[in-house]
Structures are given as C-alpha cells and as structure tokens.
Design a binder for these strands. Sequence first.
DNA 1: AGCCAGGAAGTCC
DNA 2: GGACTTCATGGC
Length: 268
Amino acid sequence: MESIKIKDLDLDQIANSGQCFTWEPLGPRRYGVEAFGHWVEVEQNGDQFRFSCDQEEFDQVWRGYFDLDTDYGELKAAVDPEDHYLSQAVCFGGGIRVLRQDLWEVMVSFLISQNNNIPRIKNSIAYLCRSYGEKKYRCKRGQAFYTFPKPDDLKNVTEEEFKAAGLGYRAKYLPALVQKAEEGLLSRLKAAELSDARQLLLSSYGIGKKVADCICLFGLHQKEAFPVDTHIQKILALHYPKGFPEDRYPGVQGVIQQYLFYYHLKGK
DNA sequence: AGCCAGGAAGTCC
DNA sequence: GGACTTCATGGC
C-alpha cells in the first residue's frame, strides 16, 4: 500500500502506552502488529505511514483497529487550557489513540495485568500465544507469528499450566474466565450498556473495578470508562485532590485517562 | 537488595 | 461499608 497521512497517531507512544502487549518492535518507528488473525507491519515517518498490507485489508481490519475514523484532534482541542497538567499530558502523548482490540484478548490481558508490570505482562502474553495460539505466517514463506488464543483454545488448560506463563497468583483466575467465555459472556458484554457490562465483569472471579473499566475501554471501546490504577491514583492525589473533572469530557474520559496515564508512565 | 507493578479477594470490624 | 492483609514473582 502507498504511504498515507494520519493525524494524531504515534506508534511509539501507543506501543508504550500499556493498552496493547503484543506489538513487536521491528526498527525505529516500525512495528509488527497482530490482530484478528491478521498481521501487518507499520512504519511511521512524521504523519506519514506505510502499511505492509493491501488497501482492502487496510480498510477491513486496520482502519478500525487504529480507530482512524475518530477525530482525536477535536477531542484534544476541547481540553481545558487552564488544566496545565492535562495540557502537558496531551502535548506529551498526543499520538495516543484507543485501539479497537479484540475483546477476549483485552479481557485476558488485563486480568493478568493486576499488580503486575508491563514488561512482565508482555512476556506472559507472548507465552500464551506461543503455547496456545494459532501459528500463522506473515506472508508466503514469511516468518511465523502467533494469534492470541481463543477461549476454545484454553478451555482444557489447567491452573498449573497457566502458572508456567509466569502468571503467579493470577493463574487461578484464568480458568474461571475461560469458563464464563464458554458460557457466552462475550456476546452478552457486546450487547450490554456500559453499566451492565461493568456489572457482568465485576461478577467474574479476579475482575475488580479497575480491570473491568480497562476491559470496557479497550475491549468494548466504551470511551467513557475511566480506569483508576496506581498511576492515576498518584496523579489524582497530586494534581486533582478534589477529583478529576470527568464531567468536562463526556464520552471521552477514557481517552483523557490515557493521556494522563501515559504522561505519568513515561513523562516526568 | 529491595521496592514496585495498569489490583482483587479474603478477613476482619 | 471501609480499612487492612495477603497473594507470586519478574523487572528494574
């Protein structure tokens, strides 16, 4: 595919934003990305991007995955200019978008993420993909890649086997989630309102408020979800002692949350 | 070496 | 319903 211009997208920022864990760094501003059984290599040069796929796959898979039909410039322009911390955060991480990832992959990834660090989460997920995902090839005679295992691929995996992925005490949560997926949890989540989706998730073993909100935001693309993790807690305590003014950003709180999170994670 | 990690369940009161 | 403890273990 020929080079295309995309605004408000920075691959390095997204790769390090803690919302996706399987991007493979291939070089400067260049990543291999797997989603929905497809593989693509993307390279960035300023606001110019090269996708290794053809136009049809781009329109069918990657335009949606990178959320390219959403205008993030408009959203950023609505940030309160008197909110200096948020303004700096947006300036620092303005190339972050909320990806439209696979729901099941997000559920498992963030179930694993609790009280965990991002490099370790990536290692665990890579292990799960290698062990239980489908092996595919980037192109004819190309290098192999592994898809994220589906619920069916995991239904006979024991807690002990999950521990081999380095999940620690989180391993016991996974068989329970697989079971719920087999019982149709995913389709119910997709059909639910945000508050109902949250409740459904909260009733799953090992999923609490923060993980539920992450799944709503990253897996269901409910951008009003505002996950509060350790980083956001520290930001709130320091910069928003009266609480963050979520009301000012109706429907896009989750995107704002991402700017704040990334700034605290990678900025100073 | 020791602290921390995109927290949640269990156990008190 | 809140505060406090426990939970595995790799990364840095």
